[in-house]
Nucleic acid binder design. Structure first.
Lengths: 297, 297
DNA sequence: CGGCGTCTTGTAAGTTTGCTACAGAATCAC
DNA sequence: GTGATTCTGTAGCAAACTTACAAGACGCCG
């Protein structure tokens, strides 16, 4: 009962609440922002119940008194209203829509952070740092993540590739070896071509890091499964959130691999960054080169 | 003084604080998480000052009493410690590094949300909804964002393209017209080839939506400048955050354009999504097709 | 349908917490 | 070195939160 953000807990515990406590829950859920600065007496007034009922309500949803409840509510609200509360509707105005999407993205990232397997991260970092080259594969939205990774990782001097279509991916798997780190990205973890590719990579002895949304076939097949559990709900209006979390996880991996390297690698990056800044201004003279290389204008 | 998260305000107001108040500030900044559940008396004890000093401290940094301070602190902490507090260091353990990167990503998204120009969003949505086709351009990390947008927008039935290199982009600009929505993405807003491309697009009469990090040349050149102000600090270790914010902005635009459409478009997407789910399982049989199309496995 | 038991809710008192007025101490200016 | 000003702590007060208890509501079984 005491897991997760307060608002989620209220929703979950709704059926077990007494009638008056439920009135309190309704007031809180109706507009959490309004409740945050309220005093106990004010909330009692607003819900039409007595003050002790508020305290009992707070205890019922797993808080240690009203103080604790208010603090936890404030934190919940700061992270945005949970997804269940923020279904995007056609009649919402611009500000509301923007808020909902950002709130959802932020809440989701927070959720991923809390459910990340640190041991798996460590293992993945070790594998990546030990590899002589890295292959990133993904299709659709996950393909975007793979390309992003391909941009970020070569900074360490390790050759990277991110083959675009399933055939190229299969080929890359076929030519991989024990010193290859093979990073497969699939939110569903059930895309057949990715699974086939991963099987081949493992047969060739590559270390496979599987970034996926839950305990899926891909996770089973991977040497190091990395579950990035995002709150991808089924509402059509709600945009895909899994990419964001996957990108941040890539950031984490890249940063930690970098931290493993010595200061010289760091220096390389500094000089690279300054060179990039100067070349960027003259980019149009040599625009034919591989567009993925130039960096991040 | 009363703008921004509390911790930032404390940092900013540090010089104007009295000596005892400063002791309080030190305690708070040293470990904000510890302070959140503290009572006024406890914090006074911890800082080695009297209780009224705490109250004066709270007022000094723009809070309305200790109550308000505690709530605001709780909210600040929920969004992660501000970037200034969380420089990633080599000796950090895995959990710390993960926390810092996620915190920073989340804080940054929150910052962007607060600084987004809603009028510009509205204008962009109107332009996108009115266009007959949409072109997304960006290089490097922004190129990734452009490709993501290309995956997302065709859902509405409007043809989209995201030319990959500078030449192709220039070509797309040259063939654009008044009914083209031209979305240029560049965090610096100073990449020369992008600026050249945008100039051409405008000459051809296209509506140019410029997504950029600050009031840059690109913003000046755009019909509708969309400033996505992320907290990209200069620390080498700190990963690029601008992509995330840009992706979320793309989500917002896509969602809002979709909301403008009628229910039929919605139905199209529902059926598309279910079809996608079934086809995904058999994808390897027809993997030669354009890998960007299949969706988001 | 009515009485009894349990669960629920509000009243009231008690305790903690946060706030304010005031006075002493320190600091700075002259 | 003295005076004025600013800062800091002591003490008391008001408000908020909590607990104990009793009245009321509800359901169950006779």
């Amino acid at each position: 009962m005491s897991d997760g953000p307060v608002l989620e807990r209220i929703n979950r515990g709704l059926p077990t609440l007494r009638r008056s406590e439920r009135k309190v829950a309704d007031v809180v859920l109706a507009d959490p922002h309004k409740v945050v600065p309220m005093t106990l007496a004010e909330l009692a007034e607003a819900a039409g119940v007595s003050q002790p009922t508020i305290v009992r309500f707070a205890n019922a949803i797993g808080c240690d008194g009203f103080h604790d409840f208010r603090i936890q509510l404030a934190q919940s609200v700061a992270l945005g209203i949970p997804a269940t509360q923020s279904v995007i509707q056609a009649q919402d105005d611009t500000g509301t829509t923007v808020s909902k999407i950002f709130d959802f993205s932020i809440t989701s990232l927070d959720h991923v952070r809390r459910h990340l397997d640190l041991a798996a991260i460590d293992a993945a970092v070790a594998a990546l740092a030990a590899s002589t080259h890295i292959v990133f594969v993904g299709l659709g939205a996950s393909g975007i993540v793979a390309m992003d990774a391909e941009q970020k990782f070569p900074l360490f001097g390790v050759p990277c590739s991110a083959p675009v279509d399933a055939h190229q991916q299969f080929l890359a798997a076929s030519t991989s070896g024990p010193s290859t780190a093979f990073v497969a990205i699939s939110n569903t973890g059930r895309t057949v071509s990715i699974l086939d590719t991963v099987r081949v990579a493992r047969e060739r002895g590559a270390v496979v890091i599987g970034i996926t949304g839950d305990r899926s076939p891909l996770a089973e097949l991977s040497t190091i499964p990395l579950v990035v559990e995002s709150l991808d709900n089924t509402d059509v209006y709600t945009p895909t959130i899994s990419r964001l979390a996957q990108l941040v996880v890539i950031d984490v991996l890249a940063t930690m691999v970098l931290l493993r390297r010595d200061a010289s690698a760091l220096e390389d990056i500094r000089t690279m960054k300054t060179r990039l800044a100067t070349m960027r201004s003259g980019l149009h003279h040599e625009a034919v080169r591989d567009p993925n290389r130039p960096g991040r204008p």
